[in-house]
């Protein structure tokens, strides 16, 4: 179990490698980039505005320059991992209760 935690920490430190791939995943572009009429986009954008995440794109808002996005990515990985672990342990505890 301790070994698994060390592996996770190493992977977290390596996550900025995931930022090097150029481009965006297919179908995850900004709606503004769609090749359709403005009225079509306005329908989709109304739905897209339903939620704004506090750390969009795994970065601290405003950290767009130089090395900052990479640091923001690691910080996001740390925060996300902690949240995932806490939530899955909470659910796991409920499930394991006899």
């Amino acid at each position: 179990m301790r070994k698994a935690l060390i592996v996770l920490i190493i992977l977290i430190l390596l996550t900025p490698l995931g930022l090097l791939a150029p481009g965006t995943a297919w179908g995850e572009w900004d709606i503004a980039e769609w090749n359709v009429s403005e009225s079509w986009k306005s329908i989709a954008e109304r739905m897209a505005g339903i939620w704004s995440a506090p750390l969009p794109d795994y970065n601290i808002p405003g950290w767009g320059e130089g090395i900052l996005p990479y640091i923001g990515y690691i910080i996001s990985a740390v925060i996300g991992t902690i949240l995932v672990v806490l939530l899955s342990i909470a659910i796991g505890k409920i499930m394991a209760r006899r």
Binding site: A4, G92, M95
Partner: peptide
Amino acid sequence: TVPVLAILSAFSFIFMMFN
């Protein structure tokens, strides 16, 4: 096995960050 589930969930989260 709860901690194993948590580690695997965390692994999935981190693994998906590698584009």
